[in-house]
Simulated assay, not measured.
Amino acid sequence: MHPAMKTFITEIEEIIKLEENESRLTEKVSERLKKIVMKQGIIPDIYKQPNPDKYTLYPVYIDPDNRFSIASAVWDVGQSTPIHDHGTWGVIGIIQGKEREIHYAIHPGQPPLKEFERNLQKGDVVVCCTSDQDLHEVHCASSEPCVGLHIYGGNIGEIERHIYDSETGKKTTVVTAWDKVPETT
């Protein structure tokens, strides 16, 4: 593991231990992520490999007490997520490529309503979701795979979340399990 990633994990552990306010917590996590997101080799190249069939979520680090997790999220060219929530806070930093993120509001019995969209590029760090604003879809917006370093408030590979039908808004409960990290050759 990259030394800067080890330091980052220690810093996140301290932030979570000391900060109860989610807004301040995500702000502090964002500040720390900005310091490492552009570091060469912050994650091994195997965590940047796309899956040709779907976007991929690799576990970079899972806190032993499931207080937070760090994921490498990879979208190949043309791939996207369904409209979904997380059930927790999240901070993302783009390591490679470009990402288009579309945020939605949901009202019972209606299709999701687009609120805003933003384009993120290498080096950008943002709070992607909070406990009270947590509905979006993500697209690879570049001619190379998009790779993001995602920090979530819990083990995102085990948290019950929801996907939403884009036409009806119907909510389906899912768990987005971790993808297996490719083996090195």
Results as ranks from 00 to 15, higher is better:
1 M>G: 14
1 M>I: 11
2 H>R: 09
14 E>D: 15
14 E>Q: 12
21 N>L: 08
22 E>Q: 08
25 L>E: 09
29 V>S: 02
31 E>I: 05
34 K>Q: 13
35 K>W: 01
40 Q>N: 08
42 I>F: 01
44 P>H: 12
44 P>C: 03
44 P>F: 02
44 P>K: 13
47 Y>I: 03
53 D>Y: 11
53 D>I: 10
57 L>S: 11
61 Y>H: 15
63 D>P: 03
66 N>G: 06
66 N>D: 15
67 R>S: 13
74 V>C: 05
74 V>S: 09
74 V>L: 06
77 V>N: 08
77 V>Y: 13
79 Q>H: 08
82 P>N: 06
82 P>C: 01
82 P>H: 04
83 I>S: 03
85 D>I: 05
93 G>W: 06
95 I>P: 02
96 Q>S: 12
98 K>D: 14
98 K>E: 15
98 K>W: 01
101 E>Y: 00
105 A>F: 07
106 I>F: 07
109 G>S: 04
110 Q>D: 00
112 P>Q: 03
112 P>N: 03
113 L>Q: 12
117 E>S: 13
119 N>P: 02
119 N>S: 14
119 N>A: 11
124 D>V: 03
132 D>Y: 08
133 Q>C: 00
134 D>K: 00
136 H>G: 07
138 V>C: 09
139 H>T: 06
142 S>F: 13
143 S>N: 15
144 E>Q: 15
148 G>H: 06
149 L>G: 01
150 H>V: 12
152 Y>V: 08
154 G>Q: 02
154 G>N: 03
155 N>M: 11
162 H>M: 04
162 H>K: 08
165 D>I: 07
166 S>R: 12
167 E>R: 12
170 K>I: 09
171 K>D: 12
172 T>V: 15
173 T>Y: 00
174 V>G: 01
175 V>K: 03
177 A>Q: 09
179 D>I: 00
181 V>W: 07
182 P>Y: 11
183 E>S: 13
184 T>Y: 09
